[in-house]
Every structure is written in C-alpha cells, then in structure tokens.
Design a protein around this nucleic acid. Structure first.
Lengths: 195, 195
DNA sequence: TGAAATTAGTGACATACGTCACTTTTTGGC
DNA sequence: GCCAAAAAGTGACGTATGTCACTAATTTCA
C-alpha cells in the first residue's frame, strides 16, 4: 500500500530536520515507500531471516530484542513515533538478522527497501544527505548510551531513562525496561520500591 | 600542510571500500584535507573545547577517553591505522567536547574541518555517499560493542577483544584495556593470571 | 645510568547484583 | 466476569567485581 503526502505530514517534518524539500519532491520521495501495519505482539523482523527493509514509525511502539544463547533477552532499541528501526547490521550488510523486532502496540510504519533506499539516495542528493546526517545522529545517541553503561550503575541508568523518556517508560513493562537497562527484573523492582 | 596523493595511497584504498574515484577526483578531494602530526601523549582534542575537525589516521594510535565526575576514566574509542576519530557529538553538533583524544604513539593524521566536510559532500555526491556508508558501519560496530556489554561478563569481553584485535591489544597498556572494558585494573589483572 | 613515576600484581574485604523460590497483582481471551 | 497466563514484588543467599592497601616490575627522562 502506498502512502499519501497528506497522511505523512509528520514524515515530511522529520525530513525537514535536515533537508528542505518542496511538496513535489516529497510526493516523489514517498513513491519509494510502502505502508506497513502491525498488530500488537506481531513480529516485524525475525532473528535468522534476511532483512530487506528499514522502517519509519508513523504510530505505535516497537522493540528490537537480542536473545542470548542462555535465553536472556536484551533490548537493543525502542522505537516510538518518528523513529527508524530495523536490524541495522542485517539491513546494511545483507546479513541474517540477530534481533527480533516486535510491535509492543499496534503500529503503522513506512517501509523502505534496501534497493529503494539506494535508488532514493542516488536520485536525490538531498536524501543521501539526510541519511548521512541521520546516521551521524544515531551514532552519537548510541555512543551516549554506551557511555551510560560505562559510567553509571543500573539504578542511575534507570533514573536517567525515566528522566529522559518519562512518557515512553509508561508504555513499557518493567520486564522490558529491565531488559533494556541490562539488569534483572528483581533488581529493577527493588529500585522502584526504594524510590 | 597539504597531503599529496602519493603519500595517501592507503586513504585512497579506504575510500575505495565504498566508492570508485579516479586519480583526478582523488587529487581534488585531498585538497579539502590537511596533514596533522602528533607526538606520543599529545592531546588532539581536549574535553571542554569546541571541535572543528575530524581526523583519519595515516599512522599511529589514539584513544578517546571520558573522565567521569568521580575521576574514573573510560575509553570510548581506539583508533589505529585507517580509522576516523573525533569527539563525534561535539563535531557534528557544534558542541563542546566531552572526550579527551590523545596519541598513544606518534601519529600522522589527515584532518578535515566540519566546513570542508560539508563542502566536500556538497561538491562530490560520491563523498556524501561514502560518509553515509561509513556512518552506517560505525553505527553497527558501536551497536555490536553495546551488545557485548549487555550479554557478556567482563572476562568474556576481554577474551573477545583479544581474539578480535590481538595486535592492537599489544600496543595498549593493561590499564587502558581495563578502561575500555569497563572493569578495574585489578580485575583485569586477575583474568590474565587465571589464563 | 639512576631516581622518580607509572604500571602491574595480589590479598582481604565490602557490596551490588543475579538467582531461586515463592506469593501477589494485573492482563487478556472466552 | 472468570480463569489462565503473564507480570510484578519480595526474601534468602551466592558470587563477580570493586575498593583499599601494599609490593613488584617497568618505563621515562634528566
């Protein structure tokens, strides 16, 4: 299903963060995308599969989860509204996914295939610019998260997370938060008790 | 000081990983760079300063270090030959550096200013493409590192690091390794003792 | 080359956090 | 609205790793 410009105003705003595009260009750009809908609990990407698309969230909430050999789950990324999500390594390098990406709530996504992404970047220098800027941003966000693992204990990480994303945290279970913070459910439960 | 094509063969090879450029283009591209030399222990970026450049290592070895309020040092990045290094957040977002970047050995670097990087990307669509691809790669490498923090204990992280970068590890002190792994010197010392 | 500084190793002890086992509360489908 | 399943809370206990204090080895450079 093809997205229409009028239903993707937020996506236009998202592109506007880094590039200026007119309505005609935006219409052309949208041609490269499809609409994808997911019900709560549905899987978008399954570990082990090839990953041919990256996704931008119009609405809903997803998690990207790594399941370790010992069965423990670790959350590598959340995506609420206006976020890009995929198994990045699998998508960029044509490899098998190692993450499960699942809908925490019903979702509506813009889907972009690897092929279309490359075509889009080749056809619109602006879009190549956009994705470069976006990738730089993603890198620094990821680096910041790594730094909190290096410098803070789990309770501090928990409090930082609550401060930074208070609304998002209410949409996620404690179990999920623990899997993101890298602590056991039990330990997280003790933090919330203490205050 | 300006770099010459003949002295930057490895840099050409580095660009070749993602884009095809001819000698004329390479000559023009090099115009945007300068040569920067550092002696061992010299600082390239000082925490608190503005960061106007990103650097590519022709030779030598550097570390990017975060010093926590409690005085503990954490290494966020190594850069040996053919790596890009800067305080990325400060460089991309025109903010103050939070990392100290220091030469572990004498270094010879290619230096690229923010302004020249943008000009280069505007003038050569290929270079915008290169930096997009590079940023995507950096992101996935960073994500992989984050994953090892979530899934492995410090001894496993240590052994993985030795496997992956055996030569690089010999150029770094145990203290530095510990600061990268996020463990105390003492704990790392006990790993090497046990085997 | 010799003194000072830095790095590395090690034992004793403290503690944050994981694990296990169990109970209580909440959620979701029929 | 009820029942099963999932999520959340909690106490007891074990363990990995940090901290401190000290010694030994190595590096630096005057």
């Amino acid at each position: 299903m093809k997205p229409t410009p009028s239903s993707c105003i937020d996506f236009k705003k998202h592109l506007d963060r880094f590039i200026e595009i007119n309505d005609a260009e935006f219409g052309q750009i949208l041609e490269y995308f499809s609409i994808k809908k997911l019900k709560k609990h549905q899987l978008l990407v399954r570990a082990g599969d090839a990953v041919h698309h990256t996704y931008w969230t119009k609405s809903g909430l997803l998690t990207s989860t790594f399941t370790a050999p010992d069965g423990k789950e670790h959350i590598i990324q959340f995506a609420d509204e206006a976020c890009w999500i995929t198994d990045q390594n699998a998508f960029y390098h044509q490899a098998k996914a190692i993450f499960n990406i699942a809908a925490v709530e019903d979702c509506e996504l813009l889907s972009l295939s690897f092929e279309n992404r490359e075509k889009l970047c080749a056809a619109f220098h602006k879009m190549e610019h956009f994705f470069r800027k976006k990738a730089n941003d993603s890198f620094t966000k990821q680096q910041k998260r790594l730094l909190t693992y290096l410098t803070s204990d789990s309770q501090q990480r928990f409090e930082l997370l609550l401060q930074e994303y208070p609304k998002l945290m209410q949409r996620l279970s404690k179990k999920t938060l623990a899997a993101y913070l890298g602590v056991s459910r039990e330990t997280l439960s003790r933090f919330t008790k203490k205050g």
